[in-house]
């Protein structure tokens, strides 16, 4: 009986860790897709009238894609921690470690997409102010970076 429970614990630990790995990436990547999509629509609008503004528009459009990269990093790190003897406790830690980048990444990517779209509108009017648009969008990035750090710190709890 005890043997079965221990065995189950080990497998549940891995299961929870894999769940976390999946969550971290898919939430963050979903947010990035939405954010890049929003900015992309705005970029297409501007470029259709003024093809010369393609480069600044593209730079701004790409900004919300970083959240997916962060999610990817966390997923890889969690997968690196998984082994046959992962305890239930560690499994839970890894699951919860993925949540900051998952949720924060999801929302911040969408909002960053909106800021980027607004920045693209700004570039349509004043191409020389592109850098300011990028700075405004980077403000949202800060929270995704915090989330990434927290996720990494949490993962490091698992020896």
């Amino acid at each position: 009986m005890e043997f079965i429970l221990q065995n189950l614990n080990a497998q549940t630990g891995s299961f929870l860790a894999i769940l976390g790995a999946a969550f971290g990436f898919f939430l963050a990547a979903m947010g990035s897709s939405k954010g890049v999509g929003l900015a992309g629509e705005a970029a297409a609008g501007v470029v259709s009238e003024d093809p010369g503004k393609f480069v600044p528009c593209m730079v701004l459009q790409a900004m919300p894609s970083t959240q997916a990269i962060y999610g990817f990093i966390i997923t890889i790190m969690i997968l690196g921690k998984i082994n046959a003897n992962l305890s239930l406790e560690h499994g839970f830690i890894l699951l919860f470690a993925a949540l900051p980048i998952g949720f924060v990444g999801f929302l911040s990517a969408i909002y960053q997409g909106r800021v980027a779209a607004a920045g693209i509108n700004m570039v349509a009017k004043r191409p020389e102010e592109m850098v300011k648009g990028i700075i405004l969008a980077s403000m949202v990035e800060v929270f995704a970076i915090f989330a990434l750090l927290i996720s990494i710190l949490l993962i490091n709890n698992v020896g």
Partner: peptide, 17 residues
Amino acid sequence: ETNFLYAVAKIKAIENR
């Protein structure tokens, strides 16, 4: 609101004219 992103961005570019 986000349905209008393309149209609004295009109009902002056209407004210059």
